[in-house]
């Protein structure tokens, strides 16, 4: 069940919300997601999967992306592994896809439990009709480096 902490900790969930009036996509990377977004999540995931890619994208936090690409893909030069795509493409493809659909696409840094921007759309208006279906998410703290902490209140009911 998606509502359990256990499920959320072991899955990398795509979830969506409006932050400061902008349509955002978040990759949870094992983090907790706000309770109020869960009700419409499956429907949104399905609808977003069928959205066309209408705009170009821009990279978000390039420094952070460089750091990840440098750290997490060393294994590709080891014996046994195939280097089919460049590490940067491997890391970014899903975020680029979301940005091309019109979302500001964030990934979660598991160490700091903050979200950082990976890709953003060049044209924000492609989702102006879709935005009304998305729940509003509140930012707890904006850090100087551009990463954000989200307000995720404790759940009222944790189903097992």
């Amino acid at each position: 069940m998606i509502t359990t902490t256990e499920y959320q900790q072991t899955n990398d969930i795509d979830w969506f919300g409006i932050v400061n009036g902008k349509p955002c996509h978040f990759a949870s990377n094992g983090g907790r997601i706000p309770e109020h977004v869960i009700k419409t999540l499956r429907k949104l995931q399905s609808e977003v999967a069928r959205l066309p890619e209408k705009t170009d994208y821009e990279e978000g936090d390039t420094e952070k992306i460089n750091e990840i690409v440098k750290e997490q893909y060393k294994y590709l030069s080891e014996d046994g592994y195939l280097k089919i795509f460049p590490p940067r493409t491997m890391y970014m493809w899903s975020f680029i896809q979301m940005a091309q659909k019109g979302f500001y696409s964030y990934d979660r840094d598991a160490e700091t439990d903050t979200y950082f921007l990976v890709a953003k759309p060049k044209d924000e208006d492609v989702l102006k009709d879709f935005k009304s279906k998305m729940p509003v998410v509140i930012i707890k703290k904006e850090n100087g480096n551009g990463s954000i902490e989200l307000e995720i209140p404790p759940y009222k009911i944790i189903e097992k």
Binding site: N11, N29, Q45
Partner: peptide, 8 residues
């Protein structure tokens, strides 16, 4: 529905 998410 549970396969709508990537495993971590």
């Amino acid at each position: 529905k549970d396969d709508y998410d990537y495993p971590a």
